[in-house]
Structures are given as C-alpha cells and as structure tokens.
C-alpha cells in the first residue's frame, strides 16, 4: 500500500501523528499557494489553517481518483477565495476601467533566475482581483469560463483581468530585473 494511502487511512482514524505527518508533507507547498492568493503572511497562515482543518474533517471524501496534492491544493485555493470574498476586496478590484499598455514589451530572458519569493513579491503587488485571476488561470490552469463561474464574473472580465495582470506583472518584472541587472536594456 502506498505510504500516502496508509497515512490517509490513519488520518481517518483521527491518528494525530498521521495528521501531523500529512501536514508536514504538504504544508510547505500549500503555504506558498496560500501566499500567492493572500499575499499577507498572517492571512495566508489563517487560510492554511482553515484549509487543513477542512482537509482533516473531509478527508473521507477523497476518492483516490486524483493526486492527493491536487485535491489538497484545490481546498486551499477554495479556502483562499472564500477568505478574499469575505474580506470584500476581491470583487471591488475586479470592477472599474483600466488601461493596458499594449506597446509595452518585455524581454523574457533571465526570468529563470527569479526566485519564488521575488515572484510572490511581484504578484503580491497586484490588486486582489487580477492577482486571483492570474493565479487561477496561469498557475492553477483553470479556463476563463471556469474562473467566471467560480468568481461570479463574466468570462470577459476574467480575460481582461488576466491581461491586466500580465501587463502589470511584465512591468513589475522588468523593473525587478532592471534592479538586479542594471546593465541590460529593455524595449
């Protein structure tokens, strides 16, 4: 029996040591997921905590038909969305007009050197709405129509917010890269 399955079965018996083992196996990755959505570390910790409590409460609904990590990640994402919704900043930031600088071009060379902490910094500077949509589309891999359904916005809003996020990210990454490598020039 795979170790993951053994741990889950022990968790279902409320074995606290197994629960902690599962937590230690995934908490690192899931904390970064929470940080991507929440930006604020304290809020991310709250989300991770709520998500793990939900995970342990509802572990019996995991059917082993998908990778455990994907299932856990989904719960963290949903918990983060709920927290953002409760905070009320999400939809507000999805409204309003914004301009995308279509002429801005970004040289992608050297991006591989950026650490996740630097990317978290950059993502964290985005408004809640477009940060959420960028996370859902670019990193989680949801389609725009799925995001629209999840957030209760139109598909067009999801697409335009994604464009906006990318535009902002490109700008911010360019600035970040310039800060790190001042000798290079960007168009």
């Amino acid at each position: 029996m795979p170790i993951e399955k053994q741990i889950i079965e022990a968790c279902l018996e409320n074995d606290r040591a197994a629960q902690k083992q599962l937590y230690e196996m995934f908490s690192g990755k899931l904390f970064v997921v929470a940080l991507r959505y929440m930006h604020d570390r304290e809020k991310a910790k709250d989300v991770l905590q709520d998500a793990f409590v939900k995970i342990f409460r509802h572990l019996d609904s995991f059917r082993f038909d998908s990778p455990l990590e994907a299932w856990l990640r989904k719960i963290v994402v949903n918990t983060a969305l709920k927290a953002l919704k409760k905070a009320g900043n999400l939809t507000q930031s999805l409204e309003g007009d914004f301009m995308i600088d279509e002429e801005f071009h970004y040289d992608n060379k050297g991006q591989e050197n950026l650490s996740y902490q630097q990317l978290l910094e950059v993502i964290g500077e985005l408004p809640d709405g477009c940060r959420t949509i960028f996370n859902l589309y670019a990193i989680e891999g949801y389609k725009h129509h799925e995001i629209a359904k999840m957030l209760g916005v139109s598909e067009g809003t999801s697409k335009s917010q994604y464009s906006r996020a990318k535009s902002l990210l490109q700008e911010k990454l360019a600035i970040e890269k310039e800060r790190l490598n001042p000798q290079k020039e960007y168009k």
Binding site: R36, Q111, A138, Q170
Partner: peptide, 27 residues
C-alpha cells in the same frame, strides 16, 4: 508564454514551511 511559464515553473515546487504555531492551531 514566458510569464505564465515562469510562474508555473517557479511555483511548481516552491515550498515554505509555515511557523510551528500553525500546526498547533490546527491540532
């Protein structure tokens, strides 16, 4: 592609342990 790819790849295996207090709260 680069933006998406950069974020996807960077966050794919990104991991950071939260403070021990988080587990305490969960328990």
């Amino acid at each position: 592609l680069s933006i998406d790819k950069t974020f996807q790849e960077t966050f794919k295996n990104a991991s950071e342990q939260p403070e021990a207090q988080v587990w305490g709260n969960i328990a």
